[in-house]
Design a protein around this nucleic acid. Structure first.
Ligand SMILES: [Mn+2]
Ligand SMILES: [Mn+2]
Ligand SMILES: [Zn+2]
Ligand SMILES: [Zn+2]
Lengths: 133, 133
DNA sequence: AACTAAATTGTAATTATTACAAATCTGTTT
DNA sequence: AAACAGATTTGTAATAATTACAATTTAGTT
């Protein structure tokens, strides 16, 4: 599924800027910050505004086409992979690694049937291979 | 275990300010923000500085006597309960609820034996009972 | 009392994010 | 094609949480 299809499927009008951001998210699963996305796209779209990146990611998140990650104290991070997976952040190098093959969390929490769960995020923190030597 | 014992056990010199913050964390398991702690303690300790709250919580976190929660986009939140449990945040009222009786996460992640895990946090997001009616 | 190190305070700096109004773009109607 | 309306983008300013840092105060020791 390419960027254009994905936007249309999520009722997002595909502008040049939105397509560029979506395309970026589908080719960089590094959980980028707003600044990283802006810096990468800015040369090709010289008029691009950082506010547009904020607006766009906010819209994408509302429409469920990207995921907001609160794993980083400093900056918001975003994930173009919206399938269920957890994340690991290295305290030393800051890299964020996907953790797949986890059992899907229940939609209902045992002991709390009254809560409506929209989302579950699991964040691991520690040290990656490269930072352990 | 009271505030004084807890600080001493964690090699933290018990000043008036530190004792007050620790005492607050042991009697308010509401996952408070820096501002909430400051506003609550400020009347009794008129000279108290907000920087001291930041410093103190930072020290407490390093020494493992409180937990930092990244569940709230706007403010850092802290938890005086350092035992293993997850958290639920209501999108409407912002309340953060403890989720206990969860199976302890593994210290080693299946498929990633190379990662050193220091901490695991699970954040649920949705709507609480009061906000569903 | 003098000394030293640690802790606290107050203020200023930093910086991510949001607010907002002006400008631009897109598609439609006359 | 020109006029129009609505959506989108842009640039700048405002907001606000956090951090940096130097001066002051406190606590403990000689
Ligand atoms: Mn991911
Ligand atoms: Mn808790
Ligand atoms: Zn690393
Ligand atoms: Zn609620």
């Amino acid at each position: 599924m390419d960027a254009l299809e994905l936007l249309i499927k999520h009722d997002i009008k595909p502008s040049v800027q939105r397509l560029a951001v979506m395309e970026y998210m589908l080719t960089h699963f590094t959980h980028p910050t707003v600044d990283e996305i802006y810096s990468s796209l800015s040369p090709a779209i010289p008029t691009l505004s950082k506010t547009t990146i904020y607006n766009t990611l906010s819209l994408f998140e509302e429409q469920g086409v990207v995921l907001y990650l609160g794993i980083d104290k400093k900056n918001a991070r975003f994930d173009g992979n919206t399938s269920h997976h957890a994340h690991f952040r290295c305290k030393k190098c800051g890299k964020i690694i996907d953790i797949f093959n986890q059992k899907q969390e229940d939609i209902v929490i045992e002991g709390h049937p009254e809560l409506i769960i929209d989302e579950v995020q699991t964040y691991y923190t520690g040290y990656c291979k490269a930072c352990t030597n």
